[in-house]
Protein backbone atom coordinates (compact mmCIF):
# COMPACT_ATOMS: atom_id res chain seq x y z
CA UNK A 1 0.00 0.00 0.00
CA UNK A 2 1.51 3.27 -1.13
CA UNK A 3 1.73 6.25 1.15
CA UNK A 4 -0.81 8.00 -1.04
CA UNK A 5 -3.36 5.23 -0.89
CA UNK A 6 -6.08 5.97 1.61
CA UNK A 7 -5.51 9.69 1.34
CA UNK A 8 -7.81 11.88 -0.65
CA UNK A 9 -6.52 14.84 -2.55
CA UNK A 10 -7.50 16.92 0.43
CA UNK A 11 -4.84 15.03 2.37
CA UNK A 12 -7.26 13.45 4.83
CA UNK A 13 -6.17 10.21 6.39
CA UNK A 14 -8.59 7.35 6.01
CA UNK A 15 -10.62 5.97 3.15
CA UNK A 16 -12.78 7.98 0.80
CA UNK A 17 -15.92 6.22 -0.37
CA UNK A 18 -18.49 7.15 -3.00
CA UNK A 19 -22.08 5.91 -2.76
CA UNK A 20 -24.09 6.18 -5.98
CA UNK A 21 -27.85 5.61 -5.81
CA UNK A 22 -30.87 7.66 -6.78
CA UNK A 23 -32.58 6.64 -3.53
CA UNK A 24 -31.60 8.88 -0.60
CA UNK A 25 -32.76 6.12 1.77
CA UNK A 26 -30.40 3.60 0.20
CA UNK A 27 -27.53 6.07 0.24
CA UNK A 28 -28.06 6.54 3.97
CA UNK A 29 -28.26 2.78 4.51
CA UNK A 30 -25.05 2.12 2.61
CA UNK A 31 -23.34 4.98 4.44
CA UNK A 32 -24.45 3.50 7.76
CA UNK A 33 -23.25 0.04 6.78
CA UNK A 34 -19.86 1.44 5.70
CA UNK A 35 -19.53 2.95 9.16
CA UNK A 36 -19.86 -0.51 10.66
CA UNK A 37 -17.11 -2.10 8.57
CA UNK A 38 -14.38 -1.37 11.07
CA UNK A 39 -12.35 0.62 8.56
CA UNK A 40 -10.96 4.10 9.01
CA UNK A 41 -13.23 6.06 6.72
CA UNK A 42 -12.45 9.75 6.29
CA UNK A 43 -15.41 10.65 4.15
CA UNK A 44 -18.37 9.14 2.32
CA UNK A 45 -19.37 11.10 -0.78
CA UNK A 46 -22.77 10.68 -2.40
CA UNK A 47 -24.14 10.89 -5.91
CA UNK A 48 -27.67 10.41 -7.23
CA UNK A 49 -26.68 8.97 -10.60
CA UNK A 50 -23.71 8.00 -12.73
CA UNK A 51 -23.15 11.49 -14.09
CA UNK A 52 -22.98 13.00 -10.61
CA UNK A 53 -20.64 10.18 -9.64
CA UNK A 54 -18.21 11.10 -12.42
CA UNK A 55 -18.30 14.72 -11.22
CA UNK A 56 -17.45 13.57 -7.71
CA UNK A 57 -14.68 11.33 -9.01
CA UNK A 58 -13.15 14.30 -10.81
CA UNK A 59 -12.98 16.21 -7.51
CA UNK A 60 -12.05 13.55 -4.98
CA UNK A 61 -9.67 10.65 -4.97
CA UNK A 62 -11.99 7.80 -4.05
CA UNK A 63 -10.91 4.41 -2.75
CA UNK A 64 -14.15 2.51 -3.38
CA UNK A 65 -17.40 3.12 -5.26
CA UNK A 66 -20.67 1.45 -4.28
CA UNK A 67 -23.20 1.92 -7.06
CA UNK A 68 -26.76 1.04 -7.96
CA UNK A 69 -27.71 0.11 -11.52
CA UNK A 70 -31.14 1.60 -12.06
CA UNK A 71 -30.65 5.36 -11.97
CA UNK A 72 -31.76 8.32 -14.08
CA UNK A 73 -29.44 10.38 -16.32
CA UNK A 74 -26.66 7.76 -16.28
CA UNK A 75 -27.19 4.27 -14.94
CA UNK A 76 -24.70 2.07 -13.13
CA UNK A 77 -23.81 0.00 -16.19
CA UNK A 78 -22.66 3.07 -18.08
CA UNK A 79 -20.85 4.38 -15.02
CA UNK A 80 -18.85 1.15 -14.72
CA UNK A 81 -18.06 1.23 -18.44
CA UNK A 82 -16.97 4.86 -18.35
CA UNK A 83 -14.76 4.28 -15.33
CA UNK A 84 -13.18 1.23 -16.98
CA UNK A 85 -12.28 3.30 -20.06
CA UNK A 86 -10.75 6.15 -18.02
CA UNK A 87 -7.10 5.46 -17.04
CA UNK A 88 -7.53 7.70 -14.01
CA UNK A 89 -10.57 5.79 -12.75
CA UNK A 90 -10.08 2.23 -13.97
CA UNK A 91 -8.23 1.12 -10.85
CA UNK A 92 -10.95 2.25 -8.46
CA UNK A 93 -12.91 -0.81 -7.31
CA UNK A 94 -16.66 -0.69 -7.87
CA UNK A 95 -19.17 -2.74 -5.91
CA UNK A 96 -22.62 -2.94 -7.45
CA UNK A 97 -25.48 -2.79 -4.93
CA UNK A 98 -28.67 -3.41 -6.88
CA UNK A 99 -31.91 -5.30 -7.12
CA UNK A 100 -31.71 -8.87 -8.37
CA UNK A 101 -31.49 -9.08 -12.13
CA UNK A 102 -30.57 -11.38 -14.94
CA UNK A 103 -27.40 -13.43 -14.68
CA UNK A 104 -26.29 -11.99 -18.00
CA UNK A 105 -26.36 -8.48 -16.63
CA UNK A 106 -24.37 -9.43 -13.53
CA UNK A 107 -21.76 -11.16 -15.66
CA UNK A 108 -21.54 -8.17 -17.97
CA UNK A 109 -20.95 -5.84 -15.05
CA UNK A 110 -18.26 -8.05 -13.57
CA UNK A 111 -16.63 -8.43 -17.00
CA UNK A 112 -16.70 -4.68 -17.54
CA UNK A 113 -14.91 -3.95 -14.33
CA UNK A 114 -17.20 -4.16 -11.31
CA UNK A 115 -15.41 -5.99 -8.52
CA UNK A 116 -18.43 -7.49 -6.80
CA UNK A 117 -22.21 -7.53 -6.83
CA UNK A 118 -24.46 -7.29 -3.78
CA UNK A 119 -28.16 -7.90 -4.23
CA UNK A 120 -30.68 -5.64 -2.56
CA UNK A 121 -31.89 -5.91 0.09
CA UNK A 122 -28.31 -6.22 1.29
CA UNK A 123 -27.24 -7.41 4.72
CA UNK A 124 -24.80 -4.99 6.36
CA UNK A 125 -22.64 -8.01 7.20
CA UNK A 126 -22.47 -8.94 3.51
CA UNK A 127 -21.47 -5.39 2.60
CA UNK A 128 -18.80 -5.46 5.28
CA UNK A 129 -17.45 -8.77 3.98
CA UNK A 130 -17.22 -7.49 0.39
CA UNK A 131 -15.69 -4.14 1.35
CA UNK A 132 -13.11 -5.67 3.68
CA UNK A 133 -12.25 -8.31 1.07
CA UNK A 134 -11.54 -5.58 -1.47
CA UNK A 135 -9.95 -3.00 0.80
CA UNK A 136 -8.43 -5.30 3.39
CA UNK A 137 -8.95 -5.02 7.15
CA UNK A 138 -6.73 -1.95 7.34
CA UNK A 139 -7.90 -0.33 4.16
CA UNK A 140 -5.26 -1.51 1.73
CA UNK A 141 -6.67 -2.12 -1.74
CA UNK A 142 -6.46 -5.79 -2.61
CA UNK A 143 -6.20 -6.41 -6.32
Amino acid sequence: MSAEQGQGREGKMGLQMLVVDDSPVTRKMVRRAIGLCGLEVAEVHEAGNGAEALTQLASHRVDLVLADINMPVMNGVELVERMARDPGLAAIPVVIVATPMSEERVERLLDTGARAYLAKPFRPEALRDVVVQILGPKGAVHV
Binding site: L36, E125, R128
Partner: peptide
Amino acid sequence: RKIFWKAQVLV
Protein backbone atom coordinates in the same frame (compact mmCIF):
# COMPACT_ATOMS: atom_id res chain seq x y z
CA ARG B 1 -31.48 -8.16 12.50
CA LYS B 2 -33.77 -5.16 12.98
CA ILE B 3 -32.59 -4.64 16.55
CA PHE B 4 -28.91 -4.96 15.65
CA TRP B 5 -29.25 -2.66 12.61
CA LYS B 6 -30.81 0.02 14.78
CA ALA B 7 -28.14 -0.49 17.44
CA GLN B 8 -25.40 -0.42 14.80
CA VAL B 9 -24.12 -3.84 15.72
CA LEU B 10 -22.92 -6.30 13.10
CA VAL B 11 -23.24 -10.03 13.60
